[in-house]
Amino acid sequence: MPIKTCVLVGSLREGSYNRRLAEGLMHLPESREHEFAFADIGSLPLYSEEQDNDPPPSVVALRELVKGSDSLLFVTPEYNRSIPGVLKNALDHGSRPWGQSVWAGKPSAVIGTSIGQIGTALAQSHLRMVLAYLDVPLMDQPEAYIQWKDGLVSEDHTIAESSRDFLTGWMRAFFTFIERHQDV
Rank of each mutant, 00 (worst) to 15 (best):
K4M: 04
T5H: 13
T5C: 15
T5L: 12
C6T: 13
L12Y: 13
S16G: 14
Y17E: 14
Y17W: 15
N18A: 10
N18L: 10
N18K: 09
A22Y: 03
L25K: 04
H27C: 12
H27E: 10
S31C: 04
S31Q: 02
E33R: 11
D40K: 15
I41K: 04
G42F: 11
G42S: 09
S43H: 08
S43Q: 05
P45C: 03
E49D: 11
Q51A: 14
P55A: 03
P55R: 08
V59G: 11
R63Q: 08
R63L: 00
V66Y: 07
D70V: 08
S71D: 04
F74S: 03
Y79A: 02
I83T: 09
V86C: 05
L87V: 10
K88L: 08
R96G: 04
R96A: 06
Q100N: 12
S101A: 09
A104I: 06
G105A: 08
K106V: 02
P107W: 07
P107K: 02
S108Q: 05
G112K: 04
I115G: 13
I118P: 01
A121R: 05
A123W: 15
A123N: 08
Q124C: 08
S125N: 07
S125G: 10
H126K: 05
V130N: 00
D135V: 01
V136A: 02
P137T: 00
L138H: 15
L138F: 15
D140S: 15
P142C: 04
A144M: 15
I146M: 11
W148Q: 04
K149D: 11
D150L: 07
G151A: 06
G151D: 11
V153E: 07
D156S: 06
H157I: 00
I159M: 14
I159L: 15
D165P: 01
F166G: 00
W170G: 00
A173S: 15
T176V: 07
F177H: 09
I178K: 08
H181K: 11
D183M: 14
